[in-house]
Design a protein around this nucleic acid. Structure first.
Length: 194
DNA sequence: GCAATGATTTACT
DNA sequence: GTAAATCATTGCC
């Protein structure tokens, strides 16, 4: 059962980031189906400096985030890595949830082939999981209600098993780097680490 | 048109 | 722990 459009709109982005934990991310790319549990997320909002669209800064890249929630925002970082985000909130209010880590369910062998490695390093990081699932920057702006990338209900995560902490890799965001907007499932081995 | 840089990963000391 | 790889996007000329 795919998540309803309403899941992505009208709620606080940090609440959605938390709610995405335990959900299942599916992709059908190059005709190959893969699925994985979402185990780590980060929230990004227009109101804080960690976000590309901070202070409603609109460029060709961030334009996707100004659209209605429920679409994919994929961009390339450091020239090498594809980062996958879920756009949330209503049109004109750019907010997004970065998927930082997933746990493979279906198509693990395909992910191993795409990544060239096995084990936890398959999907334990934002650049890694995009590569493993076959997410490409050409998927930027596509709907999460379609048949290429979508999210379904997964396991329920109890509140006491959700850890919230500060985000990673955005030291330049100054005081906003201290926001506890990174969420992950306690004791999950696929959590990204430095 | 051109130079600077980054929501990362990997390898090396 | 530190540093290099590597290029799309961005901002300024």
């Amino acid at each position: 059962m795919k998540l309803d459009q309403n899941f992505y709109c009208g709620k606080k982005v940090e609440y959605i980031a938390k709610g995405l934990l335990g959900k299942v991310l599916h992709t059908t790319i190059e005709g190959i189906r893969t699925s994985a549990y979402i185990v780590e997320t980060e929230a990004y909002s227009v109101k804080e400096k960690g976000c590309h669209a901070y202070n409603y800064k609109r460029t060709n890249r961030t334009g996707v985030m100004f659209q209605k929630g429920g679409i994919a925002y994929v961009y390339v970082c450091y020239g090498i890595h594809h980062l996958f985000n879920v756009v949330t909130n209503i049109e004109g209010e750019p907010e997004a949830v970065l998927i930082r880590a997933v746990a493979p369910i279906v198509g693990t062998n395909v992910m191993e082939k795409r990544r060239g490695v096995k084990g936890v390093s398959l999907t334990s990081g934002p650049g890694k999981l995009s590569s493993a699932l076959g997410i490409h920057h050409s998927h930027n702006g596509i709907s999460l209600s379609g048949n290429i990338i979508w999210i379904e209900e997964g396991m329920e995560i109890e509140d006491r098993n959700i850890v919230s902490t500060t985000r990673i890799g955005i030291d330049y965001a100054e005081e906003d780097a201290l926001l506890p907007w990174r969420f992950y499932i306690r004791d999950n081995k696929y959590i990204s680490k430095r």
